[in-house]
Write a protein that binds this DNA or RNA. Structure first.
Lengths: 231, 231
DNA sequence: TCTATTTAATAACGCTCGTTACAAATATTG
DNA sequence: CAATATTTGTAACGAGCGTTATTAAATAGA
């Protein structure tokens, strides 16, 4: 079988076609670089690369597959990201940014504890079930955890991310305790671990084929237990 | 760099050297097969292959690495296991057998609920921290979950295993409720999900470099919460 | 000893891997 | 227009991938 790769799709909009005003305006903001202008948007490329790693993992994804997904040639990918490992590391960092922000935002509003937790799990489910086709679960749990055993850079990224989620949950439980939503003798650190654990089990099950409604139900029940020691 | 693979190590003991009695005895029990006797033990080979997949994942492990680990040549591996995929599937099935049995045994004794749960987590930790070098965590979480997105056979194995652990935990919580160890209005299914979730988060964190003592402490606290709705 | 039978290792298959020289393409500057 | 700078795609690199055809080795039975 012959595999013909057709590079397409994410070429940067030139923009300075049809309107000289816009072209001139653009050259005012960015002082007009010298050589051939970049044809691709690094941001979009990173997103497409992430999608690919997400499905088939780091070791299971070849650079040719990433090239096909981004529409870029391998040398262009190297020029922008360095190499495969650096590209994955950047995808991982970006994923942490987005998913940590989502969790933090869900927990930050002034909702009751149980609602706040459900918002966090709903945010996670939105990510785990994003993209077309079957659910991919969490990018970290689904792809990074495998590499973590032999790759120090990935390991420290994962370890740091896990600590942050734990800390966010713990802060929210501590706040709930201060506000009287939680019993005085509850252990915020313990509850935080269980809240993280619930997120991890959902991540695993989503990738393994569980239905979204089923996972939301699990989250619901877990929240009931975690807030059970209420008031 | 030249990589010279030296096949060694797991050759089957011939046994019928030095003593004709033993040779004759052996030919009595097993009626003496015709051709060249097998030099390798499939059981040992599967164990060694598992160790290798466990560290570097399915996609990240080449058949040459497995060959080096087992001391077998690639054709011998194919003769015994079929191909790489079938070999991994067999390793996965065997791992489920062992780890499910360990959990079931821990929960089966007539210990109090909290002790039974801790026995289960201690059994898991023994597996996650087995082998030399840094902890590899859970074989399923560490290697199968990545493949699950694109591999139907691995996916159904993982899904089935997850269901079984859930069921085992739920049965134990239900028993606890019947014995009066747990409040009447506790939800055994919900507690079972959280018990599984705790196991999953421990699996992830172990591979990501967490210390064993730290993870045991997490388990301890989780058990406290899960049994907190006691009597 | 010769033949039949079973397992083992060598060496290669075609293909894909991550990576990179290289030259063509496209822009600004003089 | 020529010179310079930057990004592009083509085509290749050596190495490794999963897999297999082939042949050698080692046993039992005739």
């Amino acid at each position: 079988m012959i595999f013909i790769t057709i590079y397409t799709n994410i070429r940067v909009e030139q923009g300075n076609r049809g309107s000289d005003d816009m072209a001139r305006k653009k050259s005012e903001t960015s002082p007009a670089r010298r050589g051939r202008p970049p044809a691709y948007d690094a941001e979009t490329a990173l997103k497409r690369a992430t999608e690919t790693f997400w499905r088939t993992g780091y070791s299971g994804t070849s650079l040719d597959k990433v090239a096909a997904a981004t529409g870029m040639s391998p040398p262009s990918l190297y020029a922008v990201f360095g190499n495969k490992h650096a590209l994955y590391l950047e995808a991982l960092a970006r994923y942490w940014e987005i998913s940590l922000a989502a969790t933090r935002e869900a927990l930050a509003g002034d909702h009751p504890l149980d609602e706040a937790l459900m918002l966090a799990y709903d945010a996670a489910l939105s990510i785990y079930f994003s993209g077309k086709g079957a659910a991919r679960g969490c990018f970290v749990v689904g792809t990074a955890v495998t590499e973590v055993a032999e790759d120090a850079a990935i390991r420290s990224s994962v370890a740091a991310g896990l600590r942050m989620i734990d800390a966010d949950f713990e802060a929210r439980f501590r706040l709930a305790q201060d506000k009287g939503e939680l019993k005085r003798d509850a252990d915020p650190a313990a509850l935080a671990i269980l809240a993280s654990a619930t997120m991890h089990t959902i991540a695993i099950r989503a990738r393994a084929g569980a239905r979204r409604s089923e996972l939301r139900e699990m989250a619901r029940k877990a929240v009931d237990v975690l807030c059970g020691c209420r008031r």
